[in-house]
Amino acid sequence: MDTRRRNNVVVTGRADGPTVVLAHGFGCDQNMWRLVVPALADRYRVVLFDYVGSGQADPAAWSEARYSRLEGYAQDVAEICAELELRGAAFVGHSVSAMIGVLAARSVPDRIGSLVMVAPSPRYIDDDGYRGGFTAEDIDELLASLESNYLGWSGAMAPVIMGNPERPELGEELTTSFCATDPDMARVFARTTFLSDTRDELKDVTVPTLVLECRQDAIAPREVGAYVHAAVPGSRLVTLDATGHCPQLSAPEVTGSEIRAFLDGLHPADPAAPAAPLPGDSR
């Protein structure tokens, strides 16, 4: 199986720059990152992909057994890293992908050298002394609503995406594929995501880690950001002035510049290299 085609891998940015992998979470696909890529592309080689079961990844490669565990998604990441022969790459994971990145960094430590966790949550359901933001009943209701909303989930996304004269740069292919998920695969991804508990993994993170949380996030509340920051040794926490669960869309400039500043800190400019624009000027 050709991993590049399977995961719709797109490599952009500066070909000889350090590599940063941008991973989407549950819901949409690599296009979630389109507003952040410009902040990185002048200095970094940017790798985008879709998990199997999302976006333009090959649906034939999907199996319920593999993608019912976060490790299955982490295997996608590990295989993409191997295919591209990455070493010490930065992995930026949004939402559930932040934890997938933690799992991948443990399984292929040579390939992933740093982590950026955007709106992460290692457990969505409240537990003794832990506030994930959801009760077990909430998540049951979500999963049940995925069942009862079957037609909504399968049918709603395709017809809603109409031509957008205000954003002509969005190609037809993008507008028809964005968020158009196979409902069966989406249901499995939702179940895997929202029933996951990967809190124990955080203490074993050994790479430099940046945690980005939003000021107001209905899915990953502030307590969770603080929890992740406290649990990952040596991590840095930045609270973005952003609302919602997708700061790369609602506040792309600040999200991009925080990621850029973190990466630049790991890769100080080579004095011999041509001067790179400052983070704030990169867009």
């Binding site: 296009n31 957008n164 205000e166 954003r167 968020c179 869309l249």
Partner: peptide, 9 residues
């Protein structure tokens, strides 16, 4: 929200 951000409608 991601869709609305992208498409404006």
């Amino acid at each position: 929200e991601p869709l609305l951000r992208m498409k404006s409608e």
